[in-house]
């Protein structure tokens, strides 16, 4: 009997990598040797100031660095490490844990297509394939199948550069890609922010919650 090879994951990037013995060990980057763009430094320092423990700023700092560099490149990580006085490894461990951090270069236009349960019950996998096809190998695009994005009410849906759109038809795939290329607002009529709550009783003309005598 032939045993098919499933995506049993023996080829996860990194698993087969040895270290490069010609490199120095990676300790906390020396500020004298690590140039950090001023705006990024300022964003990171502002984030650090928001928390009782500066390390809490790791994720916000990485968001900022990814925004600037397009991905969490070694250079980006070193810059964050330098400002936060952490080892680059510390931040690499964080990067690897979270789905939104990219550890390889990716296109600027991010399309997360939810393929989790509620969306897949409504055709998400086909949608994902369609968006992928529409984007083709355009290096400006980063089309990913994503876990539940918290918008099953508009299933199947996608997050396009952070904006949620749905419910999507297969034909929307092309439009998303075209509109992104053209720099247009994506599927304005399908944007989640413009949608009303499903509950029919959540009407807007109901009386105020508080009676007047309740007011101070």
């Amino acid at each position: 009997m032939s045993v098919a090879r499933y995506d049993h994951g023996s080829r996860i990037p990194g698993w087969d990598d040895a270290v490069d013995l010609s490199k120095d060990p990676a300790s906390i980057p020396d500020p004298a040797l690590t140039p950090v763009p001023a705006e990024l430094r300022q964003q990171i320092e502002a984030a650090m100031a928001r928390y009782p423990d500066f390390r809490s700023a790791a994720i916000p700092a990485l968001h900022a660095a990814q925004e600037l560099h397009g991905w969490c490149s070694p250079e980006a990580i070193e810059q964050v490490a330098c400002v936060m006085r952490l080892t680059p490894a510390y931040l690499t461990a964080v990067v690897g844990f979270y789905d939104m951090f990219e550890s390889k270069p990716v296109g600027r236009n991010t399309v997360y297509v939810c393929t989790n349960i509620s969306c897949s019950l409504r055709g998400a996998r086909e949608l994902h394939a369609a968006v992928q096809q529409a984007a083709g190998d355009d290096p400006d695009f980063n089309v990913r199948a994503f876990e539940c994005l918290g918008a099953c009410d508009i299933a199947p849906m996608a997050s396009v550069n952070g904006a949620y759109v749905g419910p999507l038809e297969l034909s929307d795939a092309e439009r998303i890609v075209e509109q992104l290329r053209a720099g247009e607002d994506v599927l304005p009529e399908k944007q989640l922010l413009r949608r009303k709550v499903a509950d029919p009783r959540a009407s807007t003309d109901a009386p105020a919650l508080f009676d007047d005598e309740d007011r101070a």
Partner: peptide, 27 residues
Amino acid sequence: LVLHRGAGAYICGEETGLLDSLEGKRG
């Protein structure tokens, strides 16, 4: 009150994973 954005990990909804994540670690 500080708003803290995560970065995509279901386990950070688990309350102690959330705390580690909020402290700037893996969740």
